[in-house]
Each structure stands twice: as structure tokens, then as C-alpha cells.
Nucleic acid binder design. Structure first.
Lengths: 199, 199
DNA sequence: ACCTGAACACCGTTCAAGT
DNA sequence: ACCTGAACACCGTTCAAGT
């Protein structure tokens, strides 16, 4: 438990944590390096000992978000190793839950605020690892005849895009009010995923 | 042609135009009210005569973006009134083209930078009008047996989400390199939309 | 090695004043 | 009615200096 004694200690992780908290409390617009520093109890220039600039902190927060997302997906998928269809459905639901619960972290991960993702190797690594996980589920589904035969990476992008698109529209308030009166996001995504599955 | 003579003239539209240009040239991170004012040739406080705050300018830019998107969709759809399947496919392609061509405007429309969309009636109006257009195409497809029978708004969100999701992932650099070597975004979206269509 | 404080350029917003 | 200029609080970033 390496936690409460910065001033020295691991300020780097304390800053990431502070960033996530500010994000959750004030949203993207409220996230400033100076506030993050203050919340971690250090001077406004202290973060520069651990991050090159604000973009680097955002990259670290996004990377942390992707790690959590990956873990949630894994946890949702692994119990159903013998039933790919369930993996697909449960994985999609886990994705939705993560996005709705950590909406500001999710937004920062996918909202283009991070400008040069390729400059951050650990971000690239976890995001491609996440894609591979999706691909494995898709492939298992294809082998079981649950999803159509097609290049697995193409099918995986379709599936991920379907889930991601609905969730993104939802977070943007773009799902029509009359639909939301009858169905929540989880069930809308369920419907869309079921549509992809071979009858 | 009401264009080149602000100082007086319609500064409001000049500011929106300047904003779009800065966005295209420098991206979301470079968009400041002061730069917009400077580019329009007025003092940094002049915009406040026309917009309540920065959010209002962003709302205006997003609204303008939605209007253009709507027009592109209409233009892609209207020639194929008798073949709903073509409307669906061409509409999706028009969506992709708009997003790729105006990527920063597209991002600002959907990236959660605009915080209280509901406060901007003309934004709400054009975005719901756009959704209705999608719904009409979907309904025509359903009547022609091209898309499955289901509540039209639910099906419309699935279709829009599918297209929007893939495009968003693409703009975020989240489409795997190995897939992009073989297929461009347009053809990936084509594949995904074809998957939704009744065989 | 890690952190502080002063400094600089830039930003959003307000307001009194000008035409 | 529309625009300017000074002012204020806040921000990202740098750097010399402290421990």
C-alpha cells in the first residue's frame, strides 16, 4: 500500500490520481495542471519533474483509463470461455458500464484531446492490447458460427465501432429522448449487438 | 454576398468563419477566443457583443457543422429516393467523407467540448433534424425489406452508431495499422453497413 | 533527485468608455 | 448598437535556486 506520503513518495501516481478525481468532479474543462498539482499538495511546477507537459499527464490518465477498461473487459469475458456468444454480449455490456461510470475518463480517452497518441508507447500498447482482446472474442464467435466469416480485424472493428458509436452518441446527448424513455443505453447496445449475430 | 466588410457588417458570422479556419489549421487546442477575434480583425473583447462566452461560439461552430453535414447527407440521399438501400449506403459514405474532410469540426461537434448542448436551441434543432433524416432512410429500408423490422428509432441509432463509431475510432487513430494497410475507412464502413443489411 | 517561487506569454471574462 | 482598452484571475511552461 504505497499511498499517502508524497512530498516525497511517488508523486507521479498521486498526480494521475488527482487528475482522475478532478476530471470526475469538474469534467474536461476543469482539468488544469495547476489544480492537479494543488490537489496533490505540491507547487504548480512540481509536475514537470514527472511529466514533460500537460499532454503527457493526459496521456498517463488515458493510459490508466485503458488499463481499467481492459481489466473490466477481461473480467467480463473470462468466465465464458466456452460460450463465445456470451463473451461478446457480456464484453459489450462491460464496455458500456465502464463508459457510463467513468464518463469523463472515457471522453478524454477518445475525444481527441490527446493530440499525438503515438508518442506515448504505453498508451499505444494498452490500446492495441485491448483491440486484440476484442479480436479474440470476435474470432471465437466466428469459429462458433455466431458471427459471419470475414477477416477478423475487419469484423472486430465493426463490432467495436458499433458499441463505441452508440456509447459515444449517448455521452454526447445525441440519443433521441423518445427512445431513451423506452430503453436504456445497455439495452440499445444489446439490440445492436444481437443484430450482428447470425440468426 | 454579405462578406468582407466587418468593422461593421456581420461580425457574428465572420467570427464563426474565423473559428472554423483556426480549427482547421491548428486543431481544437489552438482555438482561442482572442485568436478568433484577431483573425476577424477586431479587439479581443468584441466577440462578447455577439456571443455570451466561448462555449457559445463553439455551439455556433458546431451548429454550422451540423448544418453542413445535414446538407451533405441530403444531397447524397435525395437522388436515390426509389432505392432505399442506395440511400443507406450513400448516406453512410457521405457521413464518412464529411468527417474525414472536416475532422476538427467533426471532433468539436462530438467530443464533449460543448458542455451544455441543450442550452443552444439551434444546435438541438439541427441535430435532431439530422437524426430524423437518418430515421427516414432507415424506415424506407425497412419497408423495402432491406433492414430488419424493429422500432425505427432503435434501428436508426444502431445504424448511426455503427457508422459514427468506426469514424470516431478512425479519427482517434484507433483502427489497427494492419487493417488500414488493406482497407480505407470508406470501405470499412461499407463492410459494416452491408453486414446490417438483410441478405 | 525532487521540489519551490518568480517570471513570462497567453487566455477568458468584465467593465467603463468611446463612436 | 457595436467596438476598444485596461484590468483581473487563471493557465502552461521555464528556470534559477533551494534541499
Amino acid at each position: 500500500m504505497p499511498s499517502k506520503k508524497y512530498h516525497h513518495g511517488d508523486l507521479k501516481n498521486a498526480l494521475i490520481k488527482a487528475g482522475v478525481e478532478i476530471l470526475a468532479k469538474e469534467g474536461m474543462g476543469g482539468l488544469s495542471l495547476r489544480k492537479v498539482a494543488q490537489r496533490a499538495g505540491v507547487s504548480h511546477s512540481a509536475p514537470y519533474a514527472h511529466f514533460l507537459d500537460k499532454q503527457s499527464l493526459i496521456a498517463a490518465i488515458s493510459t490508466e483509463g485503458f488499463n481499467q477498461l481492459y481489466n473490466k473487459l477481461e473480467a467480463a469475458i473470462s468466465p465464458h470461455a466456452k460460450t463465445p456468444k456470451k463473451q461478446l454480449i457480456e464484453g459489450a455490456q462491460a464496455y458500456v458500464r465502464f463508459a457510463l461510470k467513468n464518463s469523463d475518463t472515457f471522453k478524454i480517452m477518445f475525444s481527441g484531446v490527446l493530440e499525438k497518441e503515438k508518442d506515448y508507447p504505453s498508451f499505444v500498447e494498452i490500446s492495441s492490447k485491448t483491440f486484440k482482446l476484442v479480436m479474440e472474442v470476435v474470432q471465437a464467435c466466428q469459429n462458433a458460427g455466431v458471427l459471419p466469416t470475414a477477416p477478423a480485424n475487419l469484423m472486430a472493428v465493426s463490432v467495436w465501432g458499433q458499441v463505441h458509436g452508440i456509447v459515444s452518441l449517448a455521452l454526447e446527448g445525441q440519443i433521441s429522448h423518445t427512445l431513451l424513455e423506452k430503453k436504456n443505453i445497455e439495452s440499445i447496445v444489446s439490440f445492436a449487438v444481437e443484430q450482428m449475430i447470425n440468426s
